[in-house]
Design a protein around this nucleic acid. Structure first.
Length: 155
DNA sequence: GCCAACGTTGGC
DNA sequence: GCCAACGTTGGC
């Protein structure tokens, strides 16, 4: 089983949107970066992901979701009216993929990026999302990082 | 295949 | 709103 971190802007789609979705499950579409897409294709049913809020007052990790459907073509790429339309994505040979995730847990508090950074020279030294210049919307998380962050959430 | 220009991300 | 960082595009 693998662990991930998935970024989303809460104004567009935050953890509360996922909480209100049927079966607390939703497709994670709109990823338009090759590296992030490749990570999504590595996701397996049962993998866990931190739900990260970006571009907001207090960026940070808001909760935990589970992968419930593995990568399948992201149809929003074929819709000219969609913000994430990509004319170069051919329906016969899709360029972009999405997964479905189910909300498992909303943390009692957002574990802020600021708080995460206080551990950047300790337990979270290698954490991808804390690395300088990181912009990837999907990044892998190690088991030890995962466990440490969950322990912060329960503090 | 190089690299400048451009667009996007995302924290601040 | 600014801007650093970095991915993508396209001319050569």
């Amino acid at each position: 089983m693998n662990y991930w971190l998935m970024k989303s802007e809460p104004d567009t789609f935050g953890i509360d949107h996922l909480a209100k979705a049927p079966k607390r499950t939703s497709g994670w579409d709109g990823v338009r970066n090759f590296q992030a897409r490749n990570y999504m294709r590595e996701m397996r049913v049962g993998d866990l992901a931190f739900f990260y809020h970006s571009s907001t007052q207090v960026p940070g990790i808001a909760g935990v979701a589970k992968v419930v459907r593995e990568a399948y073509p992201d149809r929003t790429a074929f819709d000219p009216k969609n913000d994430h339309y990509d004319a170069d994505s051919d329906p016969d040979k899709p360029r972009w993929y999405m997964v479905d995730v189910q909300l498992l847990r909303k943390f009692d508090r957002v574990i802020s990026l600021e708080e995460l950074r206080t551990h950047a020279s300790g337990k979270l030294k290698e954490m991808v999302v804390l690395k300088r210049g990181n912009r990837l919307s999907i990044t892998p998380v190690t088991k030890s990082e995962w466990q440490f962050i969950e322990s912060l959430a329960d503090k």
